[in-house]
Design a protein around this nucleic acid. Structure first.
Lengths: 210, 210
DNA sequence: AAAAATGTTGACCGATCGTGCAGAAATCAT
DNA sequence: ATGATTTCTGCACGATCGGTCAACATTTTT
C-alpha cells in the first residue's frame, strides 16, 4: 500500500497529533463527553492506535493538562523582584492574553477540570500550583514593601489576572456572540490587552492620576 | 405502605428537588458526565421519576440554565443611569460575589456550557444576553459622557467584572486548595469583596488618588 | 364507591463507552 | 534473507447511557 497520505510515520509526530486532537476534544466535550473514538477521528487514526500510545483515557488527559500547566507557568517568568512591577505585570497580562488566543483549548480543559473539583489533577494543585503561587505572592509583597506599588492584596490581584485573562479563552464563544457573531480582530485583541491592563493595573500603580 | 420518609408529596416539591440535584450534578460532572440516574440518586428518587417530570435530559438542563440566567440578570438591577456609578458597580460586584458563594453550581453549569460553545442554550446568548449587555454598556457610556467616571471600555469592564466574580464560584476548588485546603471564612469573603472592588473600581473612579 | 387522572416504579432496549487482545503490517537488527 | 521488535488495527467484552413502557399506587373527580 502507498503511504497513507495524512498519516505520519514516526512516534513523535503521531503522539503530537493525538495530543492536539485530545486538547481540542476534551475542551469541547468535557472529560466524560470526550470519547477516545472522537479524539481518534479528530486525529485521523483508529481508536486502537490512540490507546496504543497513551494506554488509557486518563493518562492521555493528564498529559494534556500537564502541557498547558507548563506553558502557563512559563508565562509568569517576568514576575520577579528585580523587574519593574507595572512592566512585569503588564507583560504577564499580555502573554496570558496571547495564550488565550493561541491556545484556548488548553485553558478550557483546565477550567473544566477545576470546575469539576480536579478529580484527575489534584496533585498538580497541591504540589506545583501552591508553591508557584506563594512564590509570586512573595514577589508582589516585596514590591509593596519597597513602596513600588500600592498595598493591594497580592493574592486577589493574581486571581483577578487569572480570571480576566482566562475569561477571554474560556468564554470565547460568549464574547464572539456578543461581538455580532464574528471573532475578535487583531485590532480588537490589541484593544483588549490595553483595556485589561488599564483596568487591572490602575488599581496597582502608586501614582495613578486621572 | 407507609409514607416514604424523604419522599415528598406534591409536584412542586419534587421538581424543586430535582432541579437542585441537577444543578449540582451538571456542575460537577458536565453535561455528558451527568447521568439521569446520578441526578435521581442525588434527589433521592428513581430515575424514571426524573424522566416523568422533565421528559429528557436536555429539557431538564435548559431549565437549570434558565434559572441561573434569570438570577444573574436580576443581580444587575443596580446598573441604571440615575444611580451613582461606583456605588452601583460596587453593589453589582457584591451581589455577584454573594451569588458565587451561595449558588456556585449554577455558575459552573453556565461556564461549562459556554466553554463547550453553548450547544444547548445558544438562543439565550443571541436573544437575551446580547440585548441585556448592550443596555448595560449604554448606561456605562452615559456615565462616561456625563463625566462621572473615567473613559474606560464599558464592554471590557463588564467582562472583567463577570470574569473576576465568577472566578470565585467556578474556581472555588482551586482557591480552596490555595487556602491550605479550607473553605474561605466569612472574613475572607469580606476581604475578597473589598479587594475585588478596590482592584476593579480604582480604574474606573475619576478622582482615584493614591 | 366507581371512574378518571396523576404520580411512581422496575424491567428492558439499542447505542456507545473504555479497554483487552490477537494478529497483521511495517520497521529494524543481524 | 530471516528473525526480533515495534507499530497498527479490527473485533469482542462488560458496563453504562438516555429513553420507553407497562404495571402499580395514589389522589382527584364525579
Amino acid at each position: 500500500m502507498a503511504t497513507k497520505g495524512i498519516q505520519s510515520r514516526n512516534r513523535q509526530e503521531v503522539t503530537a497529533r493525538i495530543l492536539a486532537a485530545a486538547e481540542r476534544v476534551f475542551a469541547e466535550f468535557g472529560y466524560a463527553g470526550a470519547s477516545i473514538s472522537r479524539i481518534a477521528a479528530q486525529a485521523g487514526i483508529p481508536k486502537s492506535n490512540v490507546v496504543y500510545y497513551f494506554e488509557t483515557k486518563e493518562l492521555l488527559y493528564r498529559r494534556v493538562v500537564g502541557e498547558i500547566f507548563d506553558i502557563w507557568r512559563a508565562a509568569a517568568d517576568s514576575i520577579t523582584v528585580d523587574n519593574d512591577p507595572i512592566q512585569a505585570l503588564g507583560d504577564y497580562i499580555d502573554t496570558k492574553l496571547d495564550l488565550a488566543r493561541t491556545r484556548p483549548y488548553g485553558s478550557k480543559v483546565w477550567a473544566n477540570e477545576i470546575i469539576q473539583r480536579a478529580p484527575i489533577v489534584q496533585d498538580y494543585l497541591e504540589d506545583e500550583l501552591r508553591s508557584w503561587t506563594e512564590d509570586r505572592i512573595v514577589v508582589i509583597e516585596a514590591w509593596i514593601a519597597r513602596g513600588q506599588i500600592r498595598p493591594i492584596s497580592a493574592r486577589h490581584l493574581l486571581y483577578a489576572i487569572w480570571a480576566t485573562t482566562q475569561h477571554y479563552a474560556d468564554f470565547t464563544h460568549q464574547i464572539t456572540t456578543l461581538n455580532e457573531g464574528v471573532e475578535l480582530t487583531n485590532r480588537q485583541w490589541d484593544e483588549t490587552k490595553s483595556a485589561v491592563k488599564d483596568l487591572l493595573l490602575r488599581g496597582v500603580e502608586k501614582h495613578g492620576g486621572v
